[in-house]
């Protein structure tokens, strides 16, 4: 299982903070952030807008990641808008 987390505006727009994806939903052997995004984007327009927004950030296991980074069972993948702390 891959644990997917959303934060801030995205968490509110989806009404979901944590979502679990079974690894077999993703093409085995080619499991990347991009394939995970494609699976999630199929869930609806809001999902697609969030996942493919130009400034959406992604982290895999709490390190910044890009579309080509590999995801595997047990990973935690987060999607979030640009940060505004400080």
């Amino acid at each position: 299982m891959i644990s997917v987390r959303f934060f801030a505006k995205y968490r509110e727009q989806l009404g979901i903070s944590t979502f679990t994806v079974a690894v077999n939903e993703i093409d085995p052997g080619k499991s990347t952030v991009a394939t995970l995004k494609a699976v999630l984007a199929a869930k609806g327009d809001v999902w697609r807008e969030i996942l493919y927004a130009e400034n959406t950030l992604c982290a895999v296991n709490q390190d910044l990641a890009g579309d080509n980074d590999v995801v595997a069972s047990g990973d935690e993948v987060a999607f979030y808008p640009p940060v505004t702390g400080g």
Binding site: A8, K9, A59, Y80, P81, P82, V83, T84, G85
Partner: peptide, 22 residues
């Protein structure tokens, strides 16, 4: 300010809530 994952949401005097843009 640009890398640590914090997000601010403001509550305005008119009651509207909004996420602060980067």
């Amino acid at each position: 300010k640009t890398e640590a994952p914090f997000w601010k949401k403001e509550c305005k005097a008119d009651g509207e809530q909004r996420w602060v843009d980067a």
